[in-house]
Design a protein around this nucleic acid. Structure first.
Lengths: 263, 263
DNA sequence: CGTTGACGTATCATATTATGATACGTATAA
DNA sequence: TTATACGTATCATAATATGATACGTCAACG
């Protein structure tokens, strides 16, 4: 990996990207000062970079409050991403079928370092907002999708992930004990699917089945989230799992040959 | 608007953004040379900027082919966008209900200059890929959503849009005659909804109802696309339209007070 | 098998370009 | 009114991006 003092490294561009990344769920619109504060850049630099992003259409600016916001261009980037990811095109029609058959929310998650990221979501029921939008990153160890994927890794990688990947306590019932997670992943390796309960929000049950890539490793998972108020683990395994696994298995072969070793 | 030779304009950042925008549906992964060609930058600049984007995690790079691809970070930007757009949070639960009631694909479109952009899509049926992913921009005049929105504009703006906004012939039946489009928009102004047939793909009927913002102007629309093989205009008006309009009308008041004059 | 060309990579002297301290104008609150 | 915080504008300085150039590798071709 290149160091940041390299002659092949353009500092101004990197700083501009920091402005973009300053926006997140807790920071939906930012003033110039807030932007400077969050990026650690000084006021002048922030001013110039923010203005550039505004002129280039990457940031909207409220003329009254002078606050900046992500622009529609951010969605256009997502659009380009969707075309570039070979998995999406293969998976989308099958996911639509699945969500119609189940009548429950269906997600497609990919591994992204030690997190999973939701790349497609088909909400069928009212849930909390964050569960309805794409691009959300969650610690892989705390999600059914992440566990389903890790379960397909070779022994040493799997152990390394279980021991070192991050866990954030989202709810009181988020599993912090890595031994318990190891058990859950062992189960997933044996059964071919993973389950998580109450990891991200209370009374939520997630079940996921891996999409196997070119080398036997999963790089994605089909996942389904249901409420513990209306579902039991037994009913999930009986009614949801078969169709979920069929879908994941149908996507896997279509996906092979694509996506070798991008880093 | 600032000129590009301003001291408040950081050229390197703008050039970096051009690399990002070089990716689209027809260009899912690009080599260094292709990147240089598409951006008009010389080889050295492209090399440095692409390397920076790679180091910063904005571009993935295939170690074998040395080709660049959008990274998961592009979806994270979309995630941030969703939180920042006040309309989304209001609309999402209502859109989910609507799609469940109708059993047909439901979209949320916003106006973006002279185009519309799909910010949320809830596909229920198998359709072509581009119709299932967010961030797609289409000429406003050729879409039911765009027409529904334009119909809410004051007379002069409406006429200006009809006369000057772009039209791209996507299908043989795309309406190129602006007088016909004017009629369609007049109808929409009278009826409170707009219809389009075969504009983007053949045998597709779109129907849309505007979401009215703070000043009586629409800045978004709820839209539904169905197949002409299974639907007639009459049945659409009878069965789909009432629920579609209810949804749009339910979103409008919740949305007011937000989103003043961002540019 | 050697040649050619296309491409990705690396280097470096030059001056273009970003820098950030500073000062100004304005709105809000004390 | 005064004080404070913020967005905006300017400018001399030097840090940083520039792009011409050269090198290494691979594949196609004669």
């Amino acid at each position: 990996m290149k160091t940041k003092q390299d002659t092949l490294y353009v500092g101004s561009l990197a700083k501009g990207l920091r402005l973009l990344r300053a926006f997140d769920e807790g920071h939906t619109d930012l003033s110039l000062s807030e932007l400077a504060q969050r990026t650690g850049l000084d006021k002048s630099a922030t001013q110039r970079l923010a203005n550039t992003l505004h002129v280039e259409g990457m940031l909207d600016k409220d003329p009254a409050t002078r606050r900046f916001r992500p622009s529609h261009a951010w969605l256009q980037l997502a659009y380009a991403y969707y075309w570039s990811d070979p998995l999406i095109g293969q998976a989308m029609p099958k996911l639509i079928n699945l969500s119609q058959e189940l009548g429950e929310t269906v997600n497609l998650a990919e591994i992204s370092g030690d997190h999973i990221i939701y790349v497609s979501r088909l909400p069928c029921k009212r849930t909390y907002f964050a569960a309805t939008i794409i691009g959300r990153r969650l610690p892989a160890l705390s999600t059914s999708g992440g566990r389903a994927m890790i379960a397909t890794f070779p022994e040493d990688e799997r152990r390394h992930a279980i021991e070192t990947w991050p866990i954030t306590p989202f709810t009181p019932s988020t599993t912090l004990d890595r031994a318990l997670i190891a058990t859950s992943i062992d189960d997933a390796a044996r059964d071919g699917f993973a389950v998580s309960t109450g990891q991200m929000i209370l009374n939520e049950i997630g079940v996921a089945s891996p999409i196997i890539g070119h080398d036997g490793r999963a790089c994605a998972a089909v996942q389904c989230s249901v409420s513990a108020h209306t579902w039991t683990r037994e009913r999930i395994v009986a009614e949801i799992l078969p169709k979920l696994q069929d879908t994941a298995n149908a996507i896997s072969p279509a996906f092979r040959a694509h996506r070798a070793g991008w880093d």
